[in-house]
Design a protein around this nucleic acid. Structure first.
Lengths: 129, 129
DNA sequence: CTTTGTGCAAAGCCTTTGCAATTTT
DNA sequence: AAAATTGCAAAGGCTTTGCACAAAG
């Protein structure tokens, strides 16, 4: 059974464009807010539906945050992690090649394939102390 | 600030006992149902509160399912990470002393104090391929 | 013109919270 | 008796859904 045709709409384009300019995980609501602030009015429900669609077509990665929110990120963006301040939210982008390799190795050791991972570091930043 | 004393109540005992007999991740609602079916009446809110408490004390592992539910499982009580199968959810506990130290170092380098972190590795496990 | 997509508001779910009553210590 | 804990129901927050209208092909 072939896929039903997907129509290219202004809204879907807008969501795709927004994702293209971000290489981070963002919640549906954040993406909705970004679109709104850019003057492109896209309904929240449509954002959810579009992201779901993109996920089914492997155009975006989805993961769940610790508090149950879904986060989306376009595939193939550069990979990095975050150092986040607990109180003010200030974020520093971190790279850790060693960790990447370690994660890959550990996963393969256990027979897991197509490995990916998430990593975030939290702390109290200089300005908040 | 010392921990406040934790009281041992029938309800907490019941939740702990239930977890002891289960070797899998279960949602709070499932655990609540198990207790109910055993005649131990424990309020749903109490189950949630108890699981949260156990999680804070590293007595249970918490993870989010793809549909946003929290799942709990008793664990070894030491700090560790998870290697999770994308399709069946099979989980392996992972330790990575090197990563812990690296995270700590990176954070301090940026002036962040009281460091903690989260790390999860995802892949397709042997049985799902 | 037919079919698919959008918006809005309502409904669903899981989880958290307020508060009075209850249980532990 | 004092302090922590429970239960219930209400409130929250994220996500999905029903349905009439708009847009795409």
């Amino acid at each position: 059974m072939p896929d039903q045709p997907l129509r290219l709409t202004r809204q879907r384009q807008a969501v795709a464009d927004a994702l293209a300019t971000i290489d981070d995980f963002r919640s549906a609501q954040e993406i909705h807010a970004v679109l709104a602030s850019q003057g492109h009015g896209v309904g929240l429900a449509t954002v959810y539906r579009t992201l779901q669609l993109l996920a089914e077509h492997d155009q975006v990665d989805v993961l769940r945050t610790d508090d149950g929110e879904a986060s989306y990120r376009r595939c193939s963006g550069t990979h990095h992690h975050h150092l986040v301040c607990r109180s003010c939210g200030a974020t520093v982008e971190i790279e850790g090649p060693a960790v990447e390799q370690w994660a890959q190795a550990v996963a393969e050791e256990h027979g897991y394939a197509d490995v990916s991972h998430t990593l975030e570091i939290f702390g109290d930043c200089p300005r908040c102390r």
